[in-house]
């Protein structure tokens, strides 16, 4: 659905600094059902992030990343990064104030990467500041590079999954599990159909009752707008307000080192966690780690939302 709505949006969308905003407004206000397709595409990204995060959580809690499924986990992490990349690059395309400032701050964070930071941020912006080149680059990445990577890696993910087979529940002897094992068709297909229908209904409802409303056209003067990223990046945005992440080193610590360490732990997880035990209730460190991460994300996200009122 994201691909279909994305292709349909491209029938009218123009990725240039002087037309991106107007063409998005045209889609919303003038094209029949444009508001719905854009709303579906927009809310679909949130649904995608939630689904991917839920799936990763289940894989983690069920210990399904362990041998012999290490590669599936690694490819899954790359897919997660691609989904976040879709969210980040797609956010700029309407070229309104929200888009412009989320990108400005996001790319500045990337700038803090050691050695390559300056190059990467200039490379993404296509210059020293966001402008036409940034829009062109984000557009190409959003509609060509990331979809190609997603198709390839999702195929590899499924291929590896077929090779290793599903991990199944973490409780039960092999004989009990074999007795419970069912064919993919029809039970699992039915569950998938119901799941997809529910997600479709939720996204459609959000697109219908919460349609996308653009702010003013992008400009380097934010006016009264308080820059903020999409909700799934809010915790990252908020934690950089902490005192411990102040100053040049603090900023490097908060925007690069800590997220980098978390990423490294996730990548190396199947290699240092070699205990074959999959039951989450017998893996206290994993359970505590997951709870701490979820609570932190929730706390930072909620505090960012509360801060909005303080700022107004």
């Amino acid at each position: 659905m994201r691909t279909i709505t994305g292709v349909l949006l491209m029938f009218y969308y123009v990725p240039t600094a002087d037309h991106a905003y107007a063409s998005t407004q045209y889609i919303i206000h003038d094209v029949d059902y444009g508001w719905f397709l854009l709303g579906y595409h927009f809310w679909g990204s949130s649904a995608m992030v939630i689904c991917v995060f839920a799936h990763m959580s289940q894989v983690f809690l069920w210990g399904a990343y362990k041998k012999p499924r290490e590669l599936i986990w690694l490819v899954g992490l790359a897919l997660f990064a691609i989904v976040m990349g879709f969210g980040f690059t797609g956010y700029l395309l309407p070229w309104d104030q929200r888009a412009y400032w989320a990108t400005t701050v996001g790319v500045e964070i990337m700038d803090k990467m050691p050695l390559l930071g300056d190059f990467m941020s200039r490379f993404l912006k296509g210059g020293p500041t966001p402008g036409q080149m940034t829009l062109s680059r984000f557009f190409v990445i959003h509609v060509m590079v990331l979809p190609a990577a997603l198709i390839g890696l999702a195929g590899l993910h499924l291929f590896l999954f077929r090779c290793a087979g599903p991990a199944g529940p973490f409780r039960g002897t092999p004989v009990e599990l074999k007795a419970k094992t069912d064919y993919f068709f029809p039970r699992q297909i039915w569950k998938d159909v119901v799941g997809m229908a529910v997600v479709f209904a939720c996204i459609s409802a959000l697109a219908f009752w919460e349609p996308v409303v653009l702010l003013e056209e992008a400009t380097p003067d934010p006016g009264d707008y308080h820059p903020e990223p999409e909700w799934y990046f809010l915790f990252l945005f908020q934690h950089l307000r902490l005192k411990m992440f102040s100053g040049e080193f603090g900023q490097f610590l908060g925007s690069m080192l800590l997220p980098g360490l978390l990423g490294a732990v996730l990548v190396l997880l199947p290699f240092f966690d070699r205990n074959p035990e999959r039951n989450i209730f017998k893996r206290p460190f994993a359970l505590i780690g997951w709870v701490v991460l979820i609570v932190s994300i929730l706390l930072f996200t909620v505090s960012a939302i509360i801060n909005r009122e303080y700022l107004d």
Binding site: W101, T104, V105, E108, I109, P220, D221, P222, G223, P227, L240, Q251
Partner: peptide
């Protein structure tokens, strides 16, 4: 007009 922290206004 650019904040020296992360470039906001």
């Amino acid at each position: 007009g650019k904040c020296p922290h992360l470039g906001c206004g």
